[in-house]
């Protein structure tokens, strides 16, 4: 069944049809929430809440990109969670390094078939990227996650963020620039093939 047909069936109360949409998008939704919140369990909660909210409000969906509509729900949910955290800061339960970074759990990053060396490199890369993303304001983070990490185009990202195209372009450019500076600080952690030095590009 095509996506459009699944949406129509779900709008008429067909839970199975809605759950097929959930299966298609849960990876994308969860990863967006994870990158915005930098917290595994919070991302899980926000993802579930986003799908519940989507089901409740499915009748208000009036066509267009279903993906953008869904990602807007999870982005707004993540912004709410970030605001809630600002009001009530919490101490993470995960172990931390001396710098205050969470020790990354490599279990979820494991990819069958890759060597321990490759896994270690990916864990390091992931930790560096997430640490730098965490330093950006929510909307800058959303712009760079949607376009660079999730591979959306500017128009889709603007739909998700409910911002004009020009605003998304500008936030993305500034976010990339700040990430570049931040990632250079992790240069010694990154494997050679990931380094940002200009020599590598020539």
């Amino acid at each position: 069944m095509e996506e459009e047909q699944l949406i129509q069936a779900a709008q008429q109360g067909d839970l199975d049809a809605f759950n097929r949409l959930v299966t298609s998008y849960q990876g994308l939704v969860f990863n967006l929430a994870y990158r915005l919140l930098s917290d595994d369990s919070a991302a899980e909660d926000i993802t579930q809440e986003a799908f519940i909210s989507a089901y409740k409000n499915l009748r208000s969906y009036r066509g267009g990109s279903f993906k953008a509509w869904l990602l807007r729900i999870v982005t707004n949910g993540s912004y709410d969670e970030l605001r809630r955290r600002q009001r009530r800061p919490q101490t993470p339960l995960e172990p931390e390094t001396q710098d205050g970074d969470e020790v990354p759990d490599p279990a979820w990053l494991a990819d069958p078939g890759e060597s321990p060396q490759e896994l270690a490199e990916r864990v390091e890369l992931n930790a560096a990227i997430q640490r730098c993303l965490d330093q950006l304001e929510a909307e800058f983070r959303a712009a760079v996650v949607l376009v660079d990490v999730q591979g959306m185009d500017y128009a889709e990202a603007a739909q998700v963020m409910r911002r004009p195209l020009g605003t998304v372009k500008s936030r993305l450019a500034r976010a990339r620039s700040r990430l570049q500076l931040c990632l250079q600080g992790f240069v010694e952690l990154l494997p050679d093939r990931f380094r940002l030095s200009t020599e590598g590009t020539q």
Binding site: G27, V29, R35, A43, Q48, W108, L125, R176
Partner: peptide, 20 residues
């Protein structure tokens, strides 16, 4: 290079089904 690095950010595996 920065963009290429971000595009290589590992995708997190979904921990469970979120089906209602």
């Amino acid at each position: 290079r920065t963009r290429a690095l971000l595009r290589r950010a590992p995708q997190r595996r979904v921990p469970r089904s979120f089906a209602l």
